[in-house]
Design a protein around this nucleic acid. Sequence first.
DNA 1: GCCGTTTTCGGCCCGACTGTTTTCAGTCG
Length: 585
Amino acid sequence: MTRSNEEVAELFREYADLISITGGEAYRARVYEKAARSIGGHHTDVSTLDVKGLRDIPNVGKSIAEKTVEYCRSGSVAAVEELRAKIPAGVRRLTAIPMLGPKKAFHLYEELGISSVEELADAIHDERLRDLKGFGPKTEENLLHGIELLRSSAERVLLDTATDLADDIVTELSKVTGCRRCTHAGSLRRFRETIGDIDVLAAAETSAPLMRAFTELPYVSEVIVHGSKKTSIRTTKGLQVDLRVVPPDSWGAALQYFTGSKAHNIRTRELAVHQKLKLSEYGLFDAESDEKIVSETEEEVYARLGLPWIPPTLREDRGEIEAGLHDELPELVEEQDIRGDLHTHTDLTDGLAPLEEMVAAAAERGYAYYAITDHGPDLVMQRMTDERMLAQRDRVRELDGAYRGRGGRGLRLLHGVELNIDPDGEVDWPEEFLAGFDLCVASVHSHFNQGRAALTRRIVRACENPYVNVIGHPTTRVIGKRPPVDADLDEIFAACARTGTALEINGHPARLDLRDEDILRARRHGVKFAVDSDAHSVLHLANMRYGVGMAQRGWLTKDDVINTWPRTRLQRFLRKGGTGRKARG
DNA sequence: GCCGTTTTCGGCCCGACTGTTTTCAGTCG
């Protein structure tokens, strides 16, 4: 599924790069970059909008609106084609090499006709860069190294991988004498679904011991830059980690700055400029006198700009600044609001731990309720039968009796199932049998390439089943491995809202499905969500935190998430407006 | 090229590090 918005955004990103490469005004390039972001994140399909409607999108004015219409109507934009004709695509590709930006790339093309990474490698080997102004021996070396990195294409890593590494680095640096504070920032703090590099921030009077400890970590393969305020390394697995050390009284401003996103920071700094202030990682200053106003906490910095503290998961310039200025930020769902997990497995199917261990771990997490949802018989390899499922139910009821005590404050168990949505939208069992479950998750596990119409119909049919309560990992994507299915998500979102079916936000770091942009769209349809771990082991129950991170990035509140609700309200929802199952006491 | 508590023109985020251009441009985040 490619929405026109994505295509148009990519087109304007390319146009911005081409403007930079050809030495066009820097401001024009930036404007197209900003417009690309706004359009990519806009909730309405731009191909359905006219110039007037397009101009309501932030950073889209007359010229960009007209280019968008031109693209949607004809498939191309004359101004972009003009620059494409001047600059081979390979020149833009050159800027993907670290340390090689638009200026140097254009210089290489103009002077030596280099228009691909391969040609650049050859030119360096042939020593043809030697008499080029601005290209010394060190630059040559860096370029060769950059080409190597590009070819080995260090990819973005999953959230759990990045979290584990960041936690380790923070732990090690916190031990260094003189380290006053240390934490990770950047996209990891914002819970972006994948992480390109890790940002670590530390506060200390003197930075040298921290920098030294950092470069001496056992998994450092390369020190990229090494200064007194900033040091960057690459790990043996190819992941870049940046360490910034600031004076302790700059902590708040520095944390705000290094958390990003870049777009959010530009907005906050613009707000500062409008108030005759200057915001940097060292604090908020009076623009005239350079006198420091605040810097110790993020709250102070935001407050002085006229904003409430903005949760890191919202800092993407997707409307959080405007919402903050009008005091309309959502009260985001938090991990401690989660009262239970509604999608988990045991070793009865493909989980690793027995029922008793999973339930004990759920109780340990302080949950008020917990659903066991092993696979139904359609996934043949799981060898599920009616008898085995009913035997599990008996055992769940026994355990429920054992855990429920303690004055009604104990853990309540729900016996559920993860059904398979077959190519026609049917599930594993007839309604009579489904009625016996407390809750049914239904998910697509195969036939991912049915075509848009068939896939949409298939999932909508599952929503219309009176016993299906949650659509599990709705787009079935696996990050870096399997793309999301091509379905009309807006139609599915509408069906969910209409039928009282929740959409899952699956917290497995390789899934994170739905993703943040889909959550934002679904929310506009009035859909409710279930944030689940989809745990196949005791350890995986902790993946709930990544699911909550995604929910926050989708601006969800407690009210949007059914597994933050008290059990009685949840059970009303599970009855699907009376068409589905009856409540069980 | 967009935007507006600087409002239809004039401004547009800020700083660190590197390499090479002996005073700064390019790149990155």
